[in-house]
Nucleic acid binder design. Sequence first.
DNA 1: GCAAGGTC
Length: 861
Amino acid sequence: MKTVLMVAEKPSLAQSIAKILSRGSMSSRKGLNGTCSVHEYSGTFSGQPVRFKMTSVCGHVMTLDFLGRYNKWDKVDPAELFSQAPTEKKEANPKLNMVKFLQVEGKGCDYIVLWLDCDKEGENICFEVLDAVLPVMSQAHGGEKTVFRARFSSITDTDICNAMARLGEPDHNEALSVDARQELDLRIGCAFTRFQTKYFQGKYGNLDSSLISFGPCQTPTLGFCVERHDRIQSFKPETYWVLQAKVITDKDRSLLLDWDRVRVFDREIAQMFLNMTKLEKEAQVEATSRKEKAKQRPLALNTVEMLRVASSSLGMGPQHAMQTAERLYTQGYISYPRTETTHYPENFDLKGPLRQQANHPYWADTVKRLLAEGINRPRKGHDAGDHPPITPMRSATEAELGGEAWRLYEYITRHFIATVSHDCRYLQSSVSFRIGPERFTCTGKTVISPGFTEIMPWQSIPLEESLPTCQRGDSLAVGEVKMLEKQTSPPDYLTEAELITLMEKHGIGTDASIPVHINNICQRNYVVVESGRRLRPTNLGIVLVHGYYKIDAELVLPTIRSAVEKQLNLIAQGRADYRQVLGHTLDVFKRKFHYFVDSIAGMDELMEVSFSPLAATGKPLSRCGKCHRFMKYIQAKPSRLHCAHCDETYSLPQNGTIKLYKELRCPLDDFELALWSSGSRGKSYPLCPYCSNHPPFRDMKKGTGCNECTHPTCQHSLSMLGIGQCVECESGVLVLDPTSGPKWRVACNRCNVVAHCFENAHRVRVSADTCSACEAALLDVDFNKAKSPLPGDSTQHTGCVFCDPIFQELVELKHAASCHPMHRGPGRRQGRGRGRGRRPAGKPGARRPKDKMSALAAYFV
DNA sequence: GCAAGGTC
């Protein structure tokens, strides 16, 4: 029997589609990556009995990147990234092993049906899947067609069955337009990001970002926030005047009237109007009106609307809201949360999900009434053809979901119920008055039927005192007419919800990526989220945007995305050649880049105002090995040492503190050593600023300290202070922390393992001898006389921290309890021994070095 | 270390 492989974009869709097509009679199993499932069933395909295998990928299979050697920032000129630097497709998520998985499942299959989402990205993933699977599928006979594309606009029985009945072909042009987008985004984004970062980081000490990124989505997003900031800054308040009149109603209540002129900006004119009205005793009713109006029920919920409400009403940031929604989705509480669609499919079962809510403690009454009296037809929304709107899938209580998840679920459910409720109907009445020659109006709203506002009470029309009943020709006594002086006020900072609206309007990002871009500009320290989830740009954000304005405003304008997208659409429609469009657009941006580089002084002038030059930042810490002058420690991220005399900068490990280490020097380069520490209870190690940036040995990595240095004789090196293999990680070595006394510790030089060894010892040394049982280096310990844990009066003891019965008692492994071979049963390390031949061969007691590190150390003697 | 786009 022949086999048909079918592939969807995500596991949940594979399951839904298989369920529909197999009419529920499928057998399912997990794939080799544990994430994707395979659903199998029998059926017919082009008139023959076949076995169907429905599975999925997890979004894109591949991602685009530069060849490895072009990812070395200090070796590649960013300008090369526009054309010379070759790119390659890498697996998007190596952990998922997607190519292997597809090949295992696709091996020997005769046909493939592609069920990827019906958008450009989906079309592109079709070809990623084909690239993986076609080579392992059965060879077609006599030119028979074997590759098919299913096109569907919703996950409903009819749509899916129709798609299966009318299979087409994947659209190569659409896929190519995505290839072009990927390459443009990569080349342009990385070139600008690397250039900016390197240029400014090497110049300013207090830039509060370790990465000064640029991108066609994130930069315009920042632009919106700075544009609002500029409007606030340049705002000049204006004084204006308003007439306010009070009339006395028949029930002796006073009623405030609004002036029909609203306001005037000239005091004398306002005064003139006041003079013309203030002596009037009566206000004549000129007209009355009563109109029935409706406040519309909401459209069905899509992602961006959910994110807007989450931010403005629930106080949840978009990234967090999306994570919460995803959890609710994978737990089966809501439908797929990434959709642009605000229209329920024609055959969508609205009553099913509604019935599920009929016994909910919070809204049972409303739901029961809707079910009894009949639901209202939802408003016609936009059908993007992706997924149905976000709806609740099953009832849940506050106790069940808890906290944030509950609040989001509650909103989604109330919104869903609202979409099948009636509009809110109210009466808008207004009365126009004349006082002297001036007209004033009073309006009021009274609710006729609350409709959907019953389930969305925050949307309800506020209760107001009802207007007096009066008719044209009536007159009411004037209480007073007064003139108020007011000032126009500036706009406030952009709210997240407003930003989402702007991004959506200008096509910046997608429903899935909008939260990511907003998160990016926060993480890069371009904006901060203030109360009310308003985004205030930082100095850095402002300087960047103003710099772009100055040099090339197109780099920050929202059109940067749409202009490129226009070109890409030409590829998708087959009206332009992929190579040509890509080449042309890259050329345009390459010129922009060179102009930007040449004009960077313009942005630099703005930087100088807000930030301090490297040489003027930081405090003197340790001496440079070249000029022997003090270098300055710059604490702002990324923390580093700067030698003003040599004009050199040395990066330091992040997320810890740096001190001078007893004015000790590195024997190789004469730089004074620094002591890095992750906190009082964490680990610490000495490091040489120069070696850490220019590792002296091939096996010492950049950014590491003396605890990874294989110098054979330096007293601070791994070779001298290393004890034995780490108890947890594969490659690490436990190293004595020479500064940890009197509570002595050893810490792994790769992972977080820390072992507390001895208290009350005034000296601990790593001995030249090794343990005969496990090959770890022995420790030579001098305890305090008064507090020695040793038997009798002895204060000195030499032994293995792992095997010696006295020391064993004292050692406490943090994060790694009972991982030592001594304490666990047969394991992977059994019999391998612990020692790592710290010392070069030839010294007394030393064994032949076994591993590469010590082999190298031996070589350097 | 970088972009933006999928999805987990």
